[in-house]
Amino acid sequence: MKEAQKIFSRPRSLRNISTHYCGGCGHGIAHRLVAEIVDELGIRERVIAVAPVGCAVIAYDYWDFDCSEAAHGRALAVATGIKRVRPQNIVFTYQGDGDLAAIGTSETIHAANRGENVTVIFINNAIYGMTGGQMAPTTLLGQRTATTPAGRQIGVHGAPLKISEMLALLPAVKYIERVSLHSPQEVLKAKSAIKRAFQSQIDNLGFSMVEVLSACPTYWDMPPKKALDWIRDVMSKEFPLGRIK
């Protein structure tokens, strides 16, 4: 028998430990995709990550490269400081919807508008996971959360915030794509988008961001597969997939 070759395994840049994420949570896939791209681009030794506050707060325990924390919402200010003094490094932030599009909206918009040559991996799961399932800026209309027990209503809570479309208006933003993790095919597309975003930074083009629609089975109160189907059937209708800029 011919010796079998390993065709899929854990990337070098992802530490061989269990994550604290709930079963079916999209963070694990997104972490792995970032690690795969870092390996494929050969940038592990010059990448610097900025972890958020939220469920992914200890992302630095999972990635095997240099990482910093940032206060809630401030990841892009921290990334600005790092990249400006070490332009030869590849700097990215990994942020959730509350971090990037609520408490950190100002830092997000202005880092993008300055054209900071950094990459953002924006995990949109339409909820605050870490704190117990409260309404996020991206929560869908009608979606029930801990703080919208009767569902999000436009007249009371506002509409889901489409930060990617907003950022696409800024001239210094060079690449934005919205992807989803709701099936293996979509995961592979997400990986291509993340690769393009990092390549954009390597080529010194300016601000790049990938918005990743990701499941939170726990606070959506759905089994994992149903959560993925909900992204496909409901969430991606509100947040259409594809290249935004």
Partner: peptide, 10 residues
């Protein structure tokens, strides 16, 4: 590809 916990090697 879909495994969130990177448990699978092929």
């Amino acid at each position: 590809v879909i495994c969130p916990d990177c448990c699978i090697e092929i």
